Computed example of a mutant assay.
Amino acid sequence: MIHAVTDGAGLPWYVQETILFIFQNVDAVCLREKQLSVKELSVKVAELIQQGVPPEKLILHSAPELAHFLPVRGVHFTEFDNRLAPFKKANSDKLAGQSVHSAASAQKAEADGADYLYFGHVFATKSKKDLPGRGLAALSEVAGAVSIPVIAIGGIHEGNISSVRRAGASGSAMISAFFK
């Protein structure tokens, strides 16, 4: 399982072009554009769909209110976002994911109805410059603590995907590999 996660640049034309180029080769594109207003994000998502990106490839990050209006695959939540459980209860047909940083958080997210988890950051990454990666042992612990897919994120690239799979990850989510 491979997820492309946008870089928070606001979905400018070059990011949209990248999404158009890669969507056939990834399982999902998580639109992590927290700085956009609900209206701005909905316009950008509609543009992507109009350009040919299948809505079932799109996951909205931190925007559950749009899932009622846009035919997207689902919504991804931050670790401390308490909207996951109510969202999943109201939208059983939509995918719900959550970012986690520990086995306890992973178990809570699973109990709240998450369909998958992002665990990270596994390796050192430019987006978290002053923080060391949590490592493969922590990834393995989280993957072993839940029965839902755990997708590794943070410093993931072609050269270390096999190591995260061996550590128990069901897949990888990447920002820089696609959008930098």
Results as ranks from 00 to 15, higher is better:
Thr78Arg: 14
Gln51Phe: 09
His101Ser: 12
Pro12Ile: 11
Gly74Ala: 12
Gln51Ile: 00
Thr125His: 03
Pro149Met: 05
Asn91Ile: 02
Ala114Leu: 10
Ala137Pro: 00
Lys128Met: 08
Ile19Thr: 09
Gly113Asn: 13
Ala177Pro: 01
Val150Asp: 04
Asp93Cys: 00
Gly159Thr: 10
Gly155Val: 04
Gly159Met: 05
Ala145Asp: 01
Ser92Met: 10
Phe87Val: 12
Ile161Met: 15
Ser163Glu: 15
Ala114Phe: 06
Ala46Leu: 08
Lys39Pro: 00
Ser162Ala: 14
Gly120Asn: 04
Ile2Ala: 01
Ser170Phe: 03
Glu158His: 13
Ala9Glu: 15
Gly52Glu: 03
His61Ile: 06
Lys39Cys: 00
Gly10Cys: 14
Ala109Lys: 05
Ser147Phe: 02
Gln107Val: 09
Gln98Tyr: 02
Ala114Asn: 07
Ala138Trp: 04
Ala63Asn: 06
Ile19Gly: 11
Ser176Val: 02
Lys94Ser: 08
Lys88Leu: 12
Ser127Asp: 08
Val164Asp: 03
Val29Asp: 08
Gly144Leu: 03
Leu70Trp: 09
His3Pro: 00
Gly154Asp: 08
Ile151Cys: 01
Ala143Thr: 00
Asn91Phe: 13
Pro132Val: 08
Ser62Ile: 00
Pro12His: 09
Lys34Thr: 13
Ala173His: 07
Ala169Phe: 04
Val43Gly: 00
Ser42Asp: 08
Ser170Asp: 07
Gln16Asp: 00
Thr78Leu: 15
Ser127Gly: 10
Ala104Lys: 14
Thr6Trp: 13
Gly10Met: 14
Val164Arg: 02
Phe77Glu: 11
Gly74Asp: 09
Leu41Arg: 04
Phe119Tyr: 11
Glu65Asn: 05
Val38Ser: 14
Lys57Pro: 03
Gln35Thr: 15
Glu40Val: 10
Ile156Trp: 05
Lys94Met: 11
Leu136Phe: 05
Ser92Tyr: 02
Lys126Ile: 00
Ala90Cys: 10
Leu48Phe: 06
Asp130Ser: 12
Pro55Ser: 06
Leu139Phe: 03
His121Pro: 08
Asp115Val: 09
Lys108Ser: 09
Val26Glu: 12
Lys180Ala: 11
Ala152Leu: 07
Glu158Val: 13
Lys39Gly: 00
Gly159Lys: 14
Ile49Met: 12
Leu70Ile: 10
Ile2Phe: 12
Gly133Phe: 02
Ile175Thr: 04
Ser170Leu: 00
Asn91His: 15
Ala63Val: 02
Ile153Met: 08
Pro55Glu: 06
Asp93Gly: 09
Leu41Val: 04
Ser162Lys: 14
Lys89Trp: 06
Leu58Val: 02
Ala46Ser: 15
Ala96Cys: 13
Val5Arg: 04
Ser127Trp: 06
Met1Arg: 04
Asn91Gln: 14
Ile148Phe: 06
Ser140Cys: 07
Ala106Gln: 02
Ala4Ile: 10
Ala137Ile: 12
Ala152Asn: 07
Ala143Glu: 01
Ala169Gly: 02
Ala167Thr: 05
Pro12Ser: 08
Asp115Phe: 09
Arg83Leu: 11
Ser147Val: 03
Arg32Gly: 10
Ala173Gln: 12
Ile49His: 02
Asp115Lys: 07
Phe119Cys: 06
Asn91Met: 14
Glu141Ala: 15
Pro54Leu: 08
Phe77Ala: 13
Val53Tyr: 03
Ile49Ala: 01
Ala173Asn: 12
Ser147Pro: 01
Val15His: 04
Ala169His: 02
Met1His: 05
Phe23Pro: 01
